[in-house]
């Protein structure tokens, strides 16, 4: 496959340059790549807590729950996490409820996050198709909290400390496998 776009002819014309295009990396290459790495990080920085969320996701991988996928179509401007972070940064602002939808082959779970007293978060959830579900709230370094949904698939966690969290959803009748949301920032 030819990866050079327009002309290859100039490959031959580089003889008078200070480096050998076919050769090993030289000091100039190293310096260019180092500078490029800084530019890449400056232009599109890795989100602050992505590493921490990934590490927590790894510890949950042993739960053998299929990962659900978050749907972001309804968050056109500020991302869910961005909005949550903004709300955290300014607790005096009247934070709006945020909704996130998670899907998996067999199940859709929608959660709504709203401020609770003491800077905490209330989670209201709804799962479809409606079924009796056990919903586990996993957070780093904290015991798992489990609530049962009603027969319409509704569930709630009244007051949750902010931070990284993942929900694991199991049908109470044991049907289907467990599914888990990605680790999100409450």
């Amino acid at each position: 496959m030819d990866l050079t776009p327009e002309s290859n002819q100039d490959d031959e014309a580089v003889g008078d340059l200070s480096f050998d295009p076919k050769g090993a990396l030289d000091a100039g290459d190293g310096a260019v790549l180092t500078r490029l790495a800084r530019a890449v990080e400056a232009v599109d920085p890795v989100p602050d807590d992505l590493v921490e969320r990934s590490l927590f996701a790894i510890t949950l991988a042993g739960l053998e729950a299929d990962l659900m996928e978050a749907v972001y179509l309804d968050t056109p401007l500020a991302g869910v996490r961005g909005a949550a972070a903004a709300a955290r940064a300014d607790d005096t602002a009247p934070a709006e409820a945020k909704t996130i939808t998670f899907t998996h082959d067999s199940l859709t779970v929608m959660i709504s996050l709203s401020p609770a007293a003491g800077g905490r978060v209330r989670i209201d959830g709804w799962a479809a198709p409606a079924a009796g579900l056990d919903v586990e709230l996993h957070r780093p370094g904290v015991d798992v909290v489990t609530v049962a949904s009603d027969e319409d698939g509704r569930f709630a966690f009244d007051s949750v400390e902010r931070g990284r969290a993942s929900l694991v959803v199991r049908r109470t009748d044991g049907g289907g496998g467990a599914v888990s949301t990605p680790v999100i920032e409450l």
């Binding site: 989100p47 990934s54 996701a57 990962l67 996490r81 990605p182």
Partner: peptide, 9 residues
């Protein structure tokens, strides 16, 4: 962010 997480999982 989710794709990166799921890659580690």
């Amino acid at each position: 962010e989710d794709v990166v997480q799921s890659t580690w999982v």
